[in-house]
Amino acid sequence: MSEVKIDIYTKFGCGYCFRAKRLLDEKGVSYNEFDITMGGPKRDEMMERAPMARTVPQIFIGETHVGGSDELHALERDGKLDALLAGS
């Protein structure tokens, strides 16, 4: 797979975050993880990128805002995740 940029905003101890990262790891893709447990500029960045987001994880694949773990797994179930990860 080509290297599309993947960003995931997480918080410490978040089971949904762990689940999403596990799927991405199983896919063999690298991603940038931003821990926003304590807030800060990366939390502000996440809110700019996804203004309605109130939960973590928030996942971005390329320019696409996927949403959270449930949405990521839905893409996998629907057979659409690999194409997105390939930049298609």
Score class of each variant (00 low, 15 high):
Met1Tyr: 09
Met1Thr: 14
Ser2Pro: 12
Ser2Lys: 15
Glu3His: 06
Val4Trp: 01
Lys5Asn: 11
Lys5Tyr: 01
Ile6His: 11
Ile6Leu: 09
Asp7Tyr: 01
Asp7Glu: 15
Asp7Arg: 13
Asp7Pro: 01
Ile8Arg: 08
Tyr9Gln: 00
Thr10Leu: 11
Thr10Ala: 08
Thr10Ser: 13
Lys11Asn: 04
Lys11Ser: 09
Lys11Ile: 15
Lys11Leu: 10
Phe12Asn: 06
Cys14Lys: 10
Cys14Glu: 03
Cys14Leu: 04
Tyr16Thr: 01
Cys17Ile: 00
Phe18Val: 10
Phe18Thr: 15
Arg19Tyr: 06
Arg19Gln: 10
Arg19Glu: 09
Ala20Met: 09
Ala20Lys: 01
Lys21Ser: 08
Lys21Pro: 06
Lys21Asn: 06
Arg22Phe: 11
Leu23Trp: 03
Leu23Phe: 05
Leu23Met: 08
Asp25Glu: 11
Asp25His: 15
Asp25Thr: 14
Glu26Asn: 14
Glu26Tyr: 03
Glu26Met: 14
Lys27Phe: 15
Gly28Pro: 07
Val29His: 09
Val29Arg: 13
Ser30Ile: 02
Tyr31Ile: 05
Tyr31His: 03
Tyr31Asn: 05
Tyr31Phe: 14
Tyr31Leu: 12
Asn32Phe: 02
Asn32Ala: 13
Asn32Tyr: 02
Glu33Val: 05
Glu33Tyr: 06
Phe34Asn: 01
Phe34Glu: 00
Asp35Lys: 03
Asp35Trp: 00
Ile36Tyr: 03
Thr37Trp: 04
Met38Glu: 14
Met38Asp: 14
Met38Val: 02
Met38Thr: 13
Met38His: 09
Gly39Asp: 13
Gly39Met: 08
Gly40Tyr: 05
Pro41Cys: 07
Lys42Cys: 05
Arg43Asn: 06
Asp44Ser: 14
Glu45Arg: 05
Glu45Val: 07
Glu45Trp: 02
Met47Gly: 01
Met47Cys: 04
Glu48Gly: 01
Arg49Glu: 05
Arg49Pro: 01
Arg49Val: 02
Ala50Lys: 00
Ala50Ser: 09
Ala50Cys: 02
Pro51Lys: 07
Pro51Gly: 09
Pro51Ala: 05
Met52Tyr: 02
Met52Trp: 03
Arg54Met: 02
Thr55Trp: 00
Pro57Arg: 04
Gln58Glu: 04
Gln58Ile: 00
Gln58Asn: 09
Ile59Leu: 05
Ile59Met: 09
Ile59Lys: 08
Phe60Trp: 11
Ile61His: 11
Ile61Glu: 13
Ile61Val: 15
Ile61Thr: 11
Ile61Leu: 05
Gly62Leu: 06
His65Ile: 04
His65Tyr: 04
His65Arg: 05
His65Val: 06
Val66Arg: 14
Gly67Ile: 10
Gly68Arg: 09
Gly68Ser: 14
Ser69Pro: 04
Ser69Asp: 15
Asp70Leu: 02
Glu71Asn: 13
Leu72Ala: 05
His73Thr: 04
His73Glu: 11
Ala74Glu: 15
Glu76Ile: 06
Glu76Met: 07
Glu76His: 12
Glu76Pro: 07
Arg77Leu: 14
Asp78Arg: 03
Gly79His: 06
Lys80His: 10
Leu81Val: 09
Asp82Tyr: 08
Asp82Lys: 10
Ala83Arg: 08
Ala83Ser: 14
Ala83Cys: 08
Gly87Glu: 09
Gly87Trp: 13
Gly87Ile: 13
Ser88Gln: 12
